[in-house]
Design a protein around this nucleic acid. Structure first.
Lengths: 249, 249
DNA sequence: TAGGTTGAATTGGTATTACCTTTAGACCGC
DNA sequence: GCGGTCTAAAGGTAATACCAATTCAACCTA
């Protein structure tokens, strides 16, 4: 039991050697992101292995987020660091109803964050929120800019909460939501009345946070998100928050 | 250019469909970590696709860290969340106060899940919960086993919520909490009175879910977690829930 | 000539078949 | 029991053929 002298044998698959070699070229910078690597048939011949092994290696590298293959197009390097958070994204991609859950969970977290923000907000955070409110109130902002202001406000609240963990989780969720919504080409629209309502709700949240009224802030945020979810609910229901509600805020 | 009649075709790789299906089984809990999945040849026949496609799917899942294959041995599930959260783990490792935030966020999510569970629970989920309750009530269970029963109950609620997204996020958070707490060698203890109180609270949650009382379930869960957080709060405050509250439940 | 169209070459994706290497369990003899 | 052997099963590799999407240059039309 105490014979630690014996490590496990190297035992390496051919496809592992291939993957290691390609990965080495990627991380060393020889194959920068965007670069198209040789065709599978060429790689197979160059490395003197079967195409099966080449494909096995590339499949794993795809799973790790280093490369991306398009039928007929080729295989390209997409990242030198490898993305790892495709799990949640994949989950949502599989079943659209998960998108609704995710939006709901996010709402929950935002309410929690509002409470925390009321307790912890510092002057610079309040300034940040005020700035985005002012920008959003400006009449010459178009719909797109307004959406960005919207995001900025919610981000300011997140920062004011003083929780790095929350900021991280929220960012992950937001990325997924925007990616999925962009993918489905959702447009962000709102009537002037809607914009006014959103602005008023934001102001209520801000006032409560500024007054360090934790419960009030939580309630205001809850009202706001409920309004958004309700207001932009789509007929089919499942993909309800398919609107600015999630893409923007 | 304005021919919007033609949406883009579903075009999906066979191996993607296979990977999605397997991933669904993993994230839903049907294939828990450690479980060995059917042989490639069997999967190929069951899904009516070639072994090549099965392997392509498994290679990608390996790259994502969900499964692990060894020649001659088989393919096993190693994680239900993949390689997702290294960033979040690092965040917590750097600043212990983040641990408290994470525990608080988890509480929030559990309350939400309890509400959802009351709305969606199916017989098998109720049975699962009842089983863990019964086990926990048994006098001959020691502290360690009791903690496992505790986890089982909360996991059953999570599954009953019917939200794969929630199950995923909760698992990630739980893994981080247990890892961090185990790392600091926290012991899980509780007086018999405490155990009785926890059991009673679990029963209350179960009853509400069984009665499909969403608000009641949410309140019961909230009371339970508040009690746990309060009861096991440590003097230093920051890492407050450093006890069975997070490691176990 | 400019610009769109076509079509063959290229490239990744899937299927089929065959064989090798390792693992795991049954079996057997000492 | 203990160790060894045998064997069926599982994953890994190879070779070949064909499918499907993309690319791009030759081609054709206005």
């Amino acid at each position: 039991m105490s014979q630690t002298v014996f490590g496990k044998i190297a035992r390496e698959r051919v496809s592992d050697r291939v993957a290691a070699e390609i990965l080495r070229l990627i991380t060393s910078g020889d194959l920068p992101p965007g670069e198209k690597l040789p065709a599978e048939r060429q790689l197979a011949e160059m490395m003197k292995v079967s195409r099966v092994s080449i494909r096995a290696a590339l499949q794993r590298l795809q799973g790790q987020g280093f490369v991306s293959a398009v039928q007929g197009g080729g295989t390209r390097v997409v990242s030198a660091t490898g993305d790892t958070e495709p799990a949640l994204t994949e989950l949502v991609r599989i079943d659209r109803s998960n998108l609704h859950d995710l939006a709901e969970i996010r709402s929950n977290l935002e309410v929690w964050a509002a409470r925390r923000a009321a307790e912890n907000a510092r002057p610079k955070h309040l300034e940040e929120m005020a700035a985005s409110l002012e920008a959003m109130a400006s009449p010459e902002r178009d719909a797109h800019e307004r959406a960005l202001d919207d995001v900025a406000f919610h981000l300011a609240v997140a920062r004011a909460s003083g929780s790095a963990v929350y900021l991280h989780i929220l960012t992950v969720i937001r990325d997924i939501l925007t990616e999925m919504l962009d993918y489905h080409r959702y447009e962000l629209f709102g009537t002037p009345e809607d914009d006014a309502a959103v602005l008023a709700q934001h102001r209520a949240i801000f006032d409560a946070i500024e007054a360090q009224d934790a419960s009030g802030a939580a309630e205001a945020m809850d009202r706001h998100l409920s309004w958004v979810l309700e207001h932009y609910r789509t007929p089919e229901g499942a993909a309800a928050p398919a609107s600015r509600s999630d893409a923007a805020e």
